[in-house]
């Protein structure tokens, strides 16, 4: 599929997955890929420290936006910010003409009290702010690095819960606006991230069905992160091929080469088994991102991942997307 078409599908992309699967890496790679396509991107963090700032060797982000990558050579700019319920509430009250009381509401701990009385209110404040960003012309693409899996469901479910629990008033209308956003595939989609391993795959499948059933949000392709790239020669006997090619190996080298090859072969076989199982359990297209051996993720690695992502996107069948209903 055309990569421009892929990014034009919805302005908001919510990246979700279990802790440790590389949700933040994928968020950053998506932003990078969009940037390579000339789009401006805003990455929104909601959990304080997601490691994104470290990837860019940047101090922790704040409520105010920071620019991670300037627009240059046809690349769109990448900005980032965090959203906290307290700040979102302040924004919201100020927008609603209640700025005088807003500071005290936060400082007195009233927000804690209210969020206890009405669970989900913190989430709806954040999502409400995301919605207003999506509605404004803040960026071509907004990537929301969602809370870790279990919490992602309650996070996204907060809107329907609140629309029921609070029948009137601004929270109700906020919740309904967020429901509209989540339910509209032309405005918002969720990209789920997993590793090609048993437990993360199981959890991803669960999360996908729960998101469809309980939130009704459209699911984009699934990103399988950390896939070992294939290499030539993994099946070959190092001693034999070295002899054949007239290369001399150092003592012990043949054994190291063959043990390492065996390890990779086994992991690749396991990974393939898991991605196939995922494909059977969840009929969504998959984007595979390579495991990065070289270094911890930084800007150069993000560029590589972004390029892989774009290659995978171009290989997607457009007909396979836009069918949010997964069949069981």
């Amino acid at each position: 599929m055309d990569s421009a078409q892929f990014f034009a599908a919805s302005r908001l992309v919510i990246v979700a997955g279990k802790g440790g699967v590389g949700k933040t890496t994928v968020s950053a790679a998506l932003a990078r890929a969009a940037s390579l396509e000339g789009l401006s991107t805003l990455i929104v963090e909601v959990e304080g420290k997601s490691g994104l700032s470290a990837m860019y060797h940047h101090d922790a982000f704040a409520y105010d936006e920071v620019t991670l990558s300037e627009p240059a050579d046809g690349r769109g700019e990448i900005r980032a910010r965090t959203l906290t319920p307290d700040d979102a509430l302040l924004d919201y009250l100020q927008g609603a003409g209640m700025s005088r009381i807003s500071k005290r509401l936060v400082s007195s701990g009233a927000l804690d009290m209210v969020s206890t009385a009405v669970p989900g209110i913190r989430d709806i404040l954040v999502l409400g702010k995301v919605k207003s960003l999506e509605r404004s012309d803040v960026a071509d693409l907004i990537v929301l690095d969602a809370p870790a899996a279990g919490h992602a469901i309650t996070f996204l479910q907060s809107a329907s819960g609140l629309a029921d629990a609070v029948r009137l008033g601004p929270i109700n209308s906020q919740a309904r606006d967020v429901l509209d956003l989540l339910g509209d595939p032309s405005r918002c989609q969720v990209i789920l991230v997993t590793l090609p391993e048993e437990t993360p795959v199981n959890e991803l499948v669960d999360t996908a069905f729960q998101l469809e059933d309980r939130v009704g949000v459209s699911l984009g392709p699934v990103v399988v992160n950390g896939v070992y790239p294939e290499l030539p020669g993994l099946d070959a006997d190092p001693t034999a091929v070295a002899e054949r090619d007239g290369i001399s190996l150092r003592p012990g080298e043949a054994q190291s080469l063959s043990l390492a090859a065996e390890f990779r072969r086994e992991r690749i076989a396991l990974q393939t088994g898991q991605t196939e199982r995922l494909g059977t359990a969840l009929p969504l297209p998959q984007i595979h991102l390579p495991y990065v051996f070289e270094a911890e993720i930084g800007p150069p690695q993000l560029d590589l991942l972004a390029e892989s992502l774009l290659r995978e996107v171009r290989a997607l069948d457009p007909a396979a997307l836009g069918r949010p209903e997964a069949t069981r």
């Binding site: 290499l231 030539p232 020669g233 993994l234 070959a236 190092p238 091929v241 070295a242 090619d245 290369i247 080469l257 063959s258 390492a260 090859a261 990779r264």
Partner: peptide, 8 residues
């Protein structure tokens, strides 16, 4: 093949 093995 040997190149792949060393890369691995």
């Amino acid at each position: 093949e040997l190149g792949g093995l060393f890369r691995n």
